[in-house]
Design a protein around this nucleic acid. Structure first.
Lengths: 320, 320
DNA sequence: CTGAAAGCGCTTACAG
DNA sequence: CTGAAAGCGCTTACAG
């Protein structure tokens, strides 16, 4: 494999000159440039990134850490994040934490070892004492000390959703959602729900627990067991909604006649025949992705970045 | 940031000794090792991977190149590939080609520049003159010159599927699938279909064209328009199946009473109420993923690897 | 068991 | 506009 030395010798110039041509720098005479280019061609020379990385202390790689890539929300996120990073010359390492914090720590370690230049995070864990804010790290939806984060407008869109349920005549509306261990933007959904219920003097029925992916079923069952005659439910996430759908099918509850449902997310809903019968709040995934990249690159380039970047979510109701 | 030099000085030893401790090599006295460890601790030293990579000419990163990560088949694949690579100390860069060959070439370029140590490929394009087999590259399902590839047993499972349709009494069975530009294992599905039809003296009805993701609808419409009274169809891929479902819904064709359907894949089928009414051939995604990693690591480590690795697919029919 | 030196492939002041 | 040199942080023979 030819190296820069070989090119220099072949073109009869110095190392620096070859490097300048390689990097399209000014200040090289056309003649010299042509010679170098010819030598590069002749030797089929390819610049070795490992040398560049060491020299520049940067390898143009960013990590994306999600709970699991095989999930519509996260794979969409990954798609747009890669696209945005690619436009900026970066590659993305994708890692599924599988909700194991050890895997997340491993990635932080990689960051410190310069395996990656930065991390975009979707985590359920807390990172108070990791000095994470000293490194190029951006969090999506969750919020730690001084780590910049990007989030959709959970509160406002949830208020709209709950007001819609009330407007539809629901009088016994429940909120159901998984709880996160850390202070999270997701909690805004529950807060919005409570605000709206109180405003209208309606009962507050909250089913919210710390659960893992896949454990939504029992929570839904418990909700319906403990509360007869629900006529509306605001579900924080599609997994939950899918379980609600299953429950209703089994128990002959008609959606939306008997029970009106609003789902946060709407990307992985097993709608099928229920399409247009469940309202939802769409996460602005593409914007979340692109904004998180912009913030991260800002951090990497030592620019000042906003601690919080908020993007509006849209509430989509079905036709009727 | 402390470097190895600092640790050496602090521990009062040479560079090489620190390196040996870092790499858990034998031949270091317990006393020396303890001193070095203490110095590492004191200085909060982290080994910089950029130096290691340059020195070893290897950065422990592999690329996964898929048409689009936001697709159940590919994100599942990515999940298991990452898991398997992680077990072996590798990270994975995920890139969605978006069916643009330029993006695939860009990744090959990265391989040649040592940005990545190898590539696992899912492509629709051909790479005859790229000398790809000289590099650590593994292909999934597609087959080029001397590039090792991993595939599921398309022919055998397709034969089973078609025989099942015949056994169910179907007499006018069609095959419908997207065509790839390169010689591909997917073609085995059509070949299996033809074999079975001919064996039973049934008409061969093939609708197979080069199409892009999302263009399945018109092909399906054309199939039904050109062929009245189909009672069975073997669809090469879920996207196609979904379009068939739509067509049947619109035209009051009952599945499976009027039309029996077998779908290759079964991971992204919008089953809904049709669950258990469509038979399918399940791709052994996890095994494809893990095997492709094993083959790639073999290539990276200059071992002899099989050109073709085949994994059995399973044919799952619905209950009735 | 240990250290000093060479070198991985590049870029970047520096001097001219 | 150009070249020689230093150095990025590590590992690996080599010599002792």
């Amino acid at each position: 494999m030819a190296k820069i030395q070989d090119v220099a010798r072949c073109a009869g110039v110095g190392l620096g000159t070859v490097s300048r041509v390689l990097n399209n720098e000014k200040g090289v005479s056309e003649e010299t440039r042509a010679n170098v280019l010819k030598a590069i061609e002749m030797l089929n020379y390819k610049r070795n990134s490992l040398g560049v990385s060491l020299r520049k202390n940067k390898n143009m790689i960013v990590a994306l850490l999600v709970p699991i890539i095989d999930h519509p929300f996260f794979s969409k996120l990954a798609y747009f994040i890669e696209d945005e990073l690619d436009k900026n010359g970066y590659s993305v390492i994708v890692s599924s934490s599988q909700s194991r914090q050890s895997k997340e720590y491993a990635m932080i370690e990689k960051l410190k070892r310069k395996d990656v230049d930065g991390i975009i995070f979707v985590t359920h864990y807390d990172y108070k004492d990791e000095e994470l804010s000293k490194f190029p790290v951006v969090s999506i939806d969750r919020h730690f000390d001084d780590v910049p984060f990007v989030t959709s407008d959970n509160f406002d869109s949830s208020v709209k959703a709950c007001e819609w349920l009330v407007g539809k005549g629901c009088e016994k509306i429940a909120y159901i959602g998984g709880k996160t261990l850390v202070e999270s933007e997701v909690m805004e959904r529950e807060r919005a729900y409570r605000t709206v219920m109180e405003k209208h003097g309606l009962p507050v029925i909250v089913k919210s627990e710390v659960i893992k992916h896949g454990e939504e079923g029992p929570l839904v069952e418990a909700l319906f067991e403990e509360n007869d005659g629900l006529d509306g439910v605001f579900a924080s996430g599609d997994a939950m909604t899918n379980m609600i759908i299953s429950h209703c099918e089994k128990n002959n509850i008609n959606i939306p006649e008997d029970l009106k449902v609003v789902s946060y997310d709407g990307v992985e809903m097993k709608t099928g025949e229920l399409k247009n019968k469940i309202a939802f709040i769409a996460q602005p995934i593409e914007q979340l992705a692109r904004e998180s990249v912009k913030v991260l690159l800002g951090k990497i380039n030592n620019e000042k970045v906003a601690l919080r970047t908020q993007i509006a979510a849209s509430f989509l109701k079905y036709e009727d």
